[in-house]
Design a protein around this nucleic acid. Sequence first.
DNA 1: ACATTGACCTGAGAGC
DNA 2: TGCTCTCAGGTCAATG
Length: 267
Amino acid sequence: MPELPDVEAFKRYLDATSLHQAVEGVIVRTPRLLEGTSKRRFSTHLKGRRFERTRRRGKYLGLETDDSEWLILHFGMTGRPAYYRRDSEDPPFARVLVDFDNGYRLAYCSQRKIGKLRLVNDFDAFAEEQRLGIDALDPQLNLRAFRELAADRRGMLKSFLMNQGVMAGLGNIYADEVLFQARLHPRRRLEDLDDKKVKRLFRVMKRVLQTSADKRAEPGKLPRTYLLPHRRGDRLCPVCGGRLKTTKINNRTSWFCPRCQPAPGGR
DNA sequence: ACATTGACCTGAGAGC
DNA sequence: TGCTCTCAGGTCAATG
C-alpha cells in the first residue's frame, strides 16, 4: 500500500490526530524495526516529547518533536499508522506503540515487518543520506525540471518512475497507474520518448498522484478509469474492456493493457 | 548506468 | 475443510 499517495494520506491522518500531545510511554514489540537506535534510546528519546509537525518526502514520513528531532517512518509494503483509545484493542500487527497523555495511542502497524523507524536530527540531511530524489509532488518539480531528470538517463519507463534516487514516491502500483493513464507501455524506453510524450508523462504523473492523494488513496474513491482496482479484480481494462497483461520488471509484476499501451516496436 | 535476482518477513488467498 | 504454494504496494546488495 504505502506509496506516495498513501503516505500523504498517513501524513494528513497524523496531522489530525497525533500532534501537540505529550508522549507518556513507548512500547517496542518488534525491535528489529528500529534502525540505528536501541529500544531503550528510542523510548527515552520520545518520552515527554510532543510531535509538532510532519513532513513527507517520497515514501518517508517524518514527525518533528518539540526538541527538534525527527521520528522517521517508512512503511515498507504493509505498514500503516493507527490512532485509537489506549483501552481499546490494538489493531492487527501493531509493532511499535506511542502512548499519549490524553489516553490515546499511536501504533505503527506492519504485517510483514518490512519497514523502519528511526530518529534523526535533520530531515533534509537524512533524505540526502538516503540519496532520495525530489518528491514527485514537489512544486519545484516542474516540466522543465522533469525534462532535465529524464534527459540524463536511459532505460525502461517503469524503472525510471520507480527510481527513488531520481524522483521519490512512486512504487509498483502507481508507476503502473501513471503509465496506463499516459498510454505508455512499461517497457518503453525513456530515451525513445519525444518531447510531447515526456510532457504527457509528466502531466499524467502529477495528476494521478494528486488525485489519489486527495482521495486518500482509497481504491473505491479513485476515478473509474483507473487501472489500480482491476489488477486484483476482474483483470479487465477499465477503458477498452480488453484483458490486462503482466510482465516482470525489476522483479515486480507490471500490469498493463496491451491495447491501450502498445508495446515498443509494436509487439 | 542499467537490468536482474535474491534476501528480508509474514500471512492472505488461490488451487487442489 | 485443510493443506500447500505462490505472491504481495519496498529496499538493498550482489552480479552481469
